[in-house]
Amino acid sequence: MVAIAAILFTSCKKDDDTINSAEAAGKATISMDAVVGTNDFALNTNFTANGKTWNFTQLRYWVSNVILVNAAGVEYMVPNSFYLMEENTAVVTNSNFTYPAGKRENIQLTDIPAGDYTAIKFSVGVSEKYNNNLSLQAGELSQLNGMTNVSWMWATSYIFSSLKGTVNDGTTTKTIAVETGLNTNLKSVTLSLPQALHISSAKESTISLSADVAKITDGVDIMATPTIGASQAAEMTAVAGNYSSKVFTVKSVR
């Protein structure tokens, strides 16, 4: 499907070239640099944020429906855009088949129509059609990486995001497991770029974002609710809202 789209697109581009001498489609990297406040995010490292000491063992979230908006307001939707961003240790399973430790902060986009882009949009989570049917394949969607229903008991769907570790408020240490999911919690992020980004075949562009992990549980009493899952509907909605409006900011574009 991607190949077909690419071929179609390429052929359109050629027509444009002959008529308008327009530029060829370009590549871009979207970097989502995990941070805790002003510090770079790392696993098994103590961070102080919101008056507490945090130590994380896992950060994972699905990014989907990536859209680039040009200066005229025209949206280019990246086809099959499902990406699993993560920083985690190996996922323990009931078997010799484990999901390996990994760090992934970059998304590589190709065949972006040449133009001046002023905003980026994406969703944190998996859109309803795919969330409702785990047998549909698109992008990086997979049932094999521990980001599906197992911890959800019987609501068979994707886990949109997962943050695990511990938090200490000076007196008590709690193990945290903060997850989002369910169709109602699919939230989109819209970020304006500080200046228009020209994308074309002439250079490889980069959109650098920060993902502030300290903002994920903003406004949630994490000591009272250290586990956020399907049963903690209000807290889950709050976390999904944080991903939408607080976690991501633009660092730079070039």
Binding site: N132, N133, S135, N149, M153, W154, A155, T156
Partner: peptide, 19 residues
Amino acid sequence: FWDGGSTNLESQAFGPLTS
């Protein structure tokens, strides 16, 4: 499922398979 937690037979199978 008794509560309709799975939207289709395809997704449903992952429940008993992995539980």
